[in-house]
C-alpha cells in the first residue's frame, strides 16, 4: 500500500549514484530509499511505502468477509476507486515533473506504462493494456501475477476487486469520464492471468450479467466487439 507523503524528499541526503533525470529507475536499489532512522521506505516519487506480508492480505480479505459478507467485494472496489482517483492526481504531478510535459500532451500508451511502473516495482504485478477498442469506449487490462490472487490461491471466483477499483478510479480521473471496471478472468479461478474490462457502467453491467450466466472472458470480449 502506498500513500503520498508531505515529508520533504529525503534523497538529497542520500548519495545518489544516478541523477533525477534517469527514467529507468525501477530496480530495487534505485526506486526505494530505506531510512532506518525514521523507519520509512520512501520511493522515487516521494511516496511512503509499507511492507506487508501475505498473511496481511489473507487477514484483510477474510476479516472483511466476516464483517460484511458478500459486500466485501464492493468495499474493496470502492477503496480502490478512491485510491485510483487520488493516485491519478499524484501521478499527474510527478509525471510532469519527470518528463516536463503534461499528461494530456503525452502518448497514451507511454503514459499508462509510466503510471503502472511504480506498481510493478512495488510488487503489484505486471500489466498489459489492450487499447484496440478504446474508440468504442472500452478496453481490457491483463494483469500478471496479481498480489491478491497469488496470495489467496485458487478460490474459484474473482478476487482482485481492489485492482478493478484502482483502474476505474484512475481512468475516471484521467479521462474525466465516469468509468467502471470488472474483473472478467482471475488467477484465483485457475486462469494463468487476470483480465479486467474497463468501460461505461452499462457495459460493465452487461459483462457482469454474462459472467453470472457462465460466460468466459473470451466470450465477453467477442460479444463486446460485435456491438
Amino acid at each position: 500500500m502506498t500513500t503520498p507523503t508531505s515529508r520533504p524528499d529525503p534523497r538529497p541526503a542520500v548519495t545518489m549514484s544516478v541523477g533525477r533525470d534517469k527514467h529507468s529507475h525501477y530496480s530495487y536499489r534505485d526506486f526505494f530509499r530505506f531510512n532506518r532512522e525514521q523507519g520509512t521506505i520512501i520511493d522515487w516519487n516521494n511516496t511512503q511505502n509499507l511492507l506487508l506480508s501475505e498473511d496481511f492480505i489473507v487477514g484483510l480479505q477474510t476479516g472483511l468477509e466476516r464483517e460484511v459478507g458478500d459486500a466485501s467485494a464492493a468495499v474493496m472496489y470502492t477503496i480502490g476507486i478512491d485510491w485510483g482517483k487520488r493516485d491519478a492526481a499524484h501521478f499527474s504531478q510527478w509525471y510532469e515533473r519527470e518528463y516536463g510535459v503534461g499528461v494530456k500532451q503525452s502518448n497514451l500508451l507511454f503514459l499508462l506504462e509510466t503510471w503502472w511502473w511504480p506498481f510493478t516495482a512495488q510488487g503489484w504485478g505486471k500489466w498489459e493494456v489492450e487499447t484496440e477498442s478504446k474508440q468504442k469506449g472500452f478496453l481490457f487490462i491483463n494483469l500478471f501475477d496479481s498480489m491478491v490472487a497469488r496470495t489467496l490461491g485458487d478460490v474459484g471466483k474473482p478476487v482482485c476487486h481492489l485492482y478493478a477499483g484502482l483502474f476505474a478510479g484512475f481512468f475516471t480521473t484521467m479521462t474525466s469520464k465516469e468509468l467502471s471496471c470488472i474483473e472478467i478472468q482471475c488467477y484465483a479461478m485457475g486462469e494463468t492471468y487476470c483480465k479486467f474490462l474497463l468501460g461505461g457502467q452499462e457495459r460493465i453491467d452487461a459483462a457482469n450479467f454474462w459472467i453470472s450466466e457462465g460466460a468466459s472472458a473470451r466470450e465477453i470480449a467477442r460479444r463486446l466487439h460485435q456491438e
Binding site: S24, Y26, F110
Partner: peptide, 9 residues
C-alpha cells in the same frame, strides 16, 4: 523497463 516502453510506442 525499456522493453515495456518500446512496446508502448
Amino acid at each position: 523497463w525499456l522493453e515495456t516502453i518500446l512496446k508502448s510506442f
